[in-house]
Amino acid sequence: MAKWLVVGISDQKIAFSPDKLVSYALGSCVGVCIYDRKLRVAGLAHILLPNSKESLHCPVNPCKYADTAIEKLVAGMEAAGCRRQRLTAKISGGANMFDIPGPSIGEKNVEAVKLKLLSLKIDIVAADVGGNHGRTLIFDSVSGKLEIKSLFHGNKII
């Protein structure tokens, strides 16, 4: 029986087949889903902010920021036996919920996530980001598929 592991804001978890990872109601947050197809190991980081170096607060919770959270997740997956060259990423979230002028926190989050994944040489194989709606993510460790649910914009699988 597959277990559902809930990943809250500024948190991350690793799931082994057949378990699923779920993050509810992301707005500007970004869910970074990393997968090792061979071992069927899935990791999900639910990040709140782009850059730990801009933090005005110490000590920094590494799971809160894109740069540190992705590094930590990848290290955790490698410690579980995953190989870097097999890892692929799917990302979702980063919406701009409120129509406030200037670059939104959602956009900054998505940019920071893309940069970090690039520097770690992990390919983004699918993405559903931006817009102005919330998303719930369900990441399946068996198939590596990411199911995205929304209130008004339908559901999709990437």
């Binding site: 109601a25 707005g27 500007s28 902010l49 919770n61 809160k64 919920m97």
Partner: peptide
């Protein structure tokens, strides 16, 4: 005022990221 109609959690991402830079 700015308005959003959506899931409560997604709406509250905004205050979370507002406070998040200074505190957990």
């Amino acid at each position: 005022p700015e308005i959003a109609i959506d899931m409560v959690g997604a709406i509250l991402n905004f205050p979370a990221s507002f406070a998040g830079e200074m505190s957990d």
